[in-house]
């Protein structure tokens, strides 16, 4: 493990916990895309099925379990406990337009044509675009709460750090996973516009609002 890998994981964890605490403390999921959170729950579920087949380390297992538990807790808060605050009218991204093509792609391009590997590949492809319902919602409402932007920042930062980790592992460990790297590049590119707004607005104390 290297510093980029570890800080990537911690950034990912920070994002998940920030979102969960935001919803819990404010007793509201206003401005959060429930569909996006359903996609992330699906991403973790399909990727971490390897918990049942292989053991890597205590760190690996516990982080995977924490990610899964937090993502399901978030979905529960949005669709059950604080359903009244869920802004469904603005959460109108058609997720089938992501899930179906990504499902097809994972059958066509993978490392091994086995159920677990296809599901894991599916999760990597899906994760790369799973933020789109949330970004779509922000573009529809034209604004985001500052705490929501912190969530998005850490979620985007995590994959960027993982890309540096991939370069590191290529040079120092000789391993390279083209699928993970290409998906990681796509994922990071999707955040670039947001990163720009975050740095130029939110970090200067302004609320993130888009021009009408």
């Amino acid at each position: 493990m290297n510093i980029f890998w570890l800080t990537g994981d911690l950034s990912h964890l920070a994002a998940i916990v920030i979102l969960l605490l935001k919803i819990w403390k404010t007793r509201s999921c206003a401005g959060i895309s429930g569909k996006g959170q359903l996609l992330f729950a699906l991403v973790f579920t399909t990727r971490y099925l390897d918990l049942l087949t292989s053991f890597i380390s205590l760190y690996n297992t516990s982080m995977k379990l924490i990610y899964i538990a937090c993502s399901y807790a978030t979905v529960y808060l949005i669709y059950m406990k604080f359903k009244a605050t869920y802004d469904g009218n603005h959460d109108t991204f058609r997720v089938e337009f992501l899930v179906v093509p990504v499902g097809g792609l994972s059958f066509l391009i993978n490392h091994d044509f086995s159920p677990l590997e296809i599901l894991c590949t599916f999760s990597i492809y899906l994760e790369s675009v799973a933020i789109l319902p949330q970004l779509f919602m922000i573009s529809k409402t034209g604004e985001a709460e500052t705490i929501t932007t912190h969530y998005l920042f850490f979620l985007g930062l995590y994959r960027a750090l993982y890309l540096v980790n991939s370069i590191w592992r290529f040079y120092f460990e000789g391993c390279f996973d083209l699928i993970a790297v290409v998906a990681g590049v796509v994922q990071t590119i999707l955040y670039c516009d947001f990163f720009y707004l975050y740095i130029t607005k939110v970090l200067k104390g302004k609320k993130l609002s888009l021009p009408a």
Binding site: D50, N60, D112, I124, Y162, C175, F176, D177, A180
Partner: peptide, 10 residues
């Protein structure tokens, strides 16, 4: 070949 990275990475 299995995607090694995606199983030890999160």
């Amino acid at each position: 070949k299995k995607s090694v990275l995606t199983h030890d990475e999160l």
